[in-house]
């Protein structure tokens, strides 16, 4: 998703409105607090503590929604100051395109539960490195239970309207998953059966994949799965079987 710190929300609102308009209302606007240390260091954009980045994201979402709404909008926050601006173009989707807000920590998931339509259940990236052991362990089923619990609690009555999403980073079709599951188990710090449930992986036959996705929906209400481009073909039979069901 878009790193909030890379663009002013007024600039982003205009781009999002344009994309939604010119695509005939097909935009899903994914935005996060920003996390990749290397990006910040290389570009010279200051990397503030997580709490500041999340607070800024919260303001940014308020600005985006205000500019997508009807009429002129004013917002005087800690981080952004918008004065009497009627955001243009308005998106085709009203009141606004679905927001995808995701994260791994409680603060950002609470924000997502309150403000987003699609909530991304992700690794905890407080280390600034997606390949860290900390990030991997935050994706084990027990950790996912906790994250979904935070979302449920913060969402309250909204929970039923939310779509929960995960990025399935590793898709591997096989009839003999034993060795792979062992490796995964090591990374997640759990047993092989639990590792297989971790919502960022999908290992097995197409039938087993479909069953795993059903189970993740039952357990966590996760119904929206994003796979990497290289898994497009391998995953297609699962899409054919489950999409829209």
């Amino acid at each position: 998703m878009l790193g909030n710190d890379y663009k002013h929300p007024v600039v982003l609102a205009r781009e999002a409105g344009t994309l939604d308009l010119l695509s005939g209302g097909r935009l899903e606007l994914g935005i996060g607090a920003g996390w990749m240390t290397a990006d910040y260091e290389k570009s010279g954009i200051p990397l503030d503590p997580p709490g500041v980045r999340v607070a800024r994201l919260a303001e940014s979402i308020a600005v985006l929604k205000g500019l997508f709404g009807d009429g002129p909008f004013t917002f005087h926050g800690e981080h952004y100051r918008v004065t009497d601006l009627d955001g243009r173009p308005k998106p085709v989707q009203r009141p606004h395109p679905p927001f995808v807000v995701g994260g791994g920590g409680r603060r950002v998931l609470t924000l997502a539960a309150r403000e987003a339509q699609i909530v991304g259940i992700n690794a905890n990236l407080r280390s600034g490195d997606a390949a860290s052991a900390d990030a991997a362990r935050s994706l084990a089923p027990g950790a996912i239970d906790e994250k979904v619990g935070w979302v449920r609690e913060a969402a309250g009555e909204r929970f039923g309207d939310l779509e929960l999403q995960t990025l399935v980073g590793f898709v591997h079709v096989t009839d003999d998953p034993g060795a792979i599951l062992e490796t995964m188990a090591g990374a997640f710090g759990v047993g092989p059966a639990q590792a297989r449930l971790a919502p960022v992986t999908l290992v097995g036959s197409h039938t087993e994949m479909a069953e795993l996705l059903e189970e993740r929906r039952r357990r966590w209400s996760i119904s929206y799965h994003v796979v990497p481009a290289e898994a497009l073909d391998a995953f297609a039979p699962v899409v054919a079987r489950l999409a829209g069901r």
Binding site: V10, V11, E15, T18, L22, R88, P89
Partner: peptide, 14 residues
């Protein structure tokens, strides 16, 4: 600009 104009980058890409 931030008046009635579309955002330039997505508009030219489209």
């Amino acid at each position: 600009h931030f008046g009635q104009e579309l955002a330039p980058m997505p508009a030219i890409a489209m």
